[in-house]
Amino acid sequence: MATPVAELPAAPSVRRAGSFFWGLHGGDKPAFLITISCAAAIVLVTCLLVYELFVNSAVSRHKFGWDFLFSRVWDPVAGQFGALPFVYGTVVTSALALVIAVPLGVGAAIFLSELAPPRVSDTLTFLVELLAAVPSVIFGLLAVFVLVPFLKQIEPVLRSVLGWLPTFQGPFYGFSLFAAGVILAIMVLPFIISISREVLLAVPTDQREAALALGATKWESTWQVVVPFARKGITGSIFLALARALGETMAVTMVIGNDPKISASLFAPGYSIAAIIANEFTEATGDLYTSSLIELGLVLFALTILINGIARLLILTTTRRGET
């Protein structure tokens, strides 16, 4: 078994013929420099994005100041621009989306993480994630040709049940805040489901077992122990969904009705920040018009960054807690 040791030739002094890269500290220095400059490029790009939004909205910011946010007039012909109708439309549709999607999403997440057998849960989660991959313009397509006609049909039912609310009065146009909210709900549903499911799965098993061992039913252990444990993370997933809903453009643009008015009724048409940018950006004439649209973009950016930040913080704190 004792084989004689192989006589190896001395290692060649040049590592690889003609390779400048490997010559410098075996490539460590250049590799470090290349990768860190790519990382730095990302920081640079993000800063540049904020800078560009800021600089290119200067004309509008100087002319209107903070009034921009509170003015409800949007009149390109008269050169009067105010963000309020769009902020209102954005917030109302997103809120409606959450009202619909949160109970559905959290319920589905509970089913997938706590109740369904692993194989079923994995398959359904896979399908839900596919739903998340559907492009927004396709949701818009379906909303225009399927959802709006459908809503028109069930409108009398809605009115007879919820008609006493001011939000469900006035004529129903089909293309409305309501339609936009419903399609947004469908679009954010997969995010709420898959993130909430992950957060729920991160809850330690002994929490469930402790409750069950005390005689709790499956539902009691889930609702009274597991869900409260994961509460922050679920809230985080809701905020993340909210951030997506706020910035969502195409589907909303296609069904919201594109009317810059503030109306109490969800049945009335409205407008959202993203939708007006999408519709009017290429037609905007004059610096002030374009600049106002870019300032709207800045407002949207600030809004989503804020919501995203809160979401991430919440998700981080619960998944950390689950690990320890």
Binding site: T3, L8, A11, P12
Partner: peptide, 14 residues
Amino acid sequence: GFANKATLQESVEQ
């Protein structure tokens, strides 16, 4: 830095 196929084969076996 050893790229010679024969050397490789031999040393791997050894």
